[in-house]
Design a protein around this nucleic acid. Sequence first.
DNA 1: TATTGTTATACTCTATAACTATA
DNA 2: TATAGTTATAGAGTATAACAATA
Lengths: 160, 160
Amino acid sequence: MPEPTEPRPDLLSVLPRITRLSAAVTRGRLVEHAAEQAGLARDRGSLGVLTTLRTADKPLRVGEIAERMQVVGPHITRQVQALEKRGLVRRVPDPHDARARLIELTDTGAEAVNRYLTSLLGWFADALADWPRQDRDDLVRLLARFADDVTTHLSRLDES
Amino acid sequence: MPEPTEPRPDLLSVLPRITRLSAAVTRGRLVEHAAEQAGLARDRGSLGVLTTLRTADKPLRVGEIAERMQVVGPHITRQVQALEKRGLVRRVPDPHDARARLIELTDTGAEAVNRYLTSLLGWFADALADWPRQDRDDLVRLLARFADDVTTHLSRLDES
DNA sequence: TATTGTTATACTCTATAACTATA
DNA sequence: TATAGTTATAGAGTATAACAATA
């Protein structure tokens, strides 16, 4: 009879914190507040598209946005249509492929997403304001590497 | 005329990684895979309730589960009903308050959630297997503190 | 014949409102 | 009168399937 399996206690203690953090950030007041500051609607989908375009720092195709956000194409199609109506993005022909369109931020869109991200990231910087500089740098560095490694590891899982 | 605001570049570079990580973990194959290993349905809600009960390590009231998961009461009511039908949790009277019920894992439920979490956390441990021990410890420590600080900071935002 | 994107539709997750029972 | 939980309903978020245009 096999010993009953127990999850690792150190990682187990992190889990509820991450859950709570993730829920608080995605569903809570924080994003709502930052979106208000920027004069943007506070739905996650459109904010995700705008943020993706801003961090890419260049026009992206619908499929590229979908891939970066890890969602399916039709979701992006609708978000882009709504954003275009609001004058925040523009669709231009892709010179290399007539099937595709490149999505780019308008000036209005770029300004709004800058206000949004400045408010959001500023808030996180505030939360870390009392930390020793070394710890802050370590967290940012390790978190980035962690995300990259997990993503890589995941694509291997998807292949099998 | 004010200088246009620019978000902090170091935090900005972390953002798409976190988004991708979060999406891959919550919607991707990972949770699905771990749930399969444990013989559990792969819906996020019920897995969240089971995980919350396991990490609390004691019976919780519906309201307590909702608070820890940062969702509203009715959501938990339905999850608990479904889990009870599947024999994974049990509702017992709260000796201190006849309005409330305490939700606790059955033996079957406890075993299943242990298998689930062992698989899930084991997978993360694998992704970190090549890291220097110091970096791993730092990440777990800093991440836990970060989550706590952000949560605290957030409740202040909710008051204003 | 494969790929990019769109339209139409359906499902999952979560919230709000109205209600019951107990404090 | 306030609180714990439930029932019923509605909305946001995301996926799947079928299709059009171009490669």
